[in-house]
Amino acid sequence: MSHRKLLFFLPFLLCFPLLSAPLHAVEDGGIANLRQTSKAFASVAREVSPSVVFIQVESVQKGIPFSPFQSPFGDDLLNVSLATVSPVFPINVSISRNAG
């Protein structure tokens, strides 16, 4: 590269780090924002989770001594298998209450 060409590009080369600096700053700011958001979620989890409860409900089915849909191994096994296919509502229902 001739000296004339080098002199022509020199100002641009010198300015490049200055131009790219704000981009880095934006990136750092973005990550910092995400960290803040993530902390906010974690804080909500920490504060509210102790007051949230898991509800388990039992109802006695009257008049059916044994049906092929009941688990002979107890409620827990039945519960797990049903829970994965949306227990209360049929699958083809488009809007359903999401009880377990």
Partner: peptide, 9 residues
């Protein structure tokens, strides 16, 4: 047996 969620109100 069913299950769900709730919270202290």
């Amino acid at each position: 047996m069913g299950q769900g969620s709730g919270f202290v109100f």
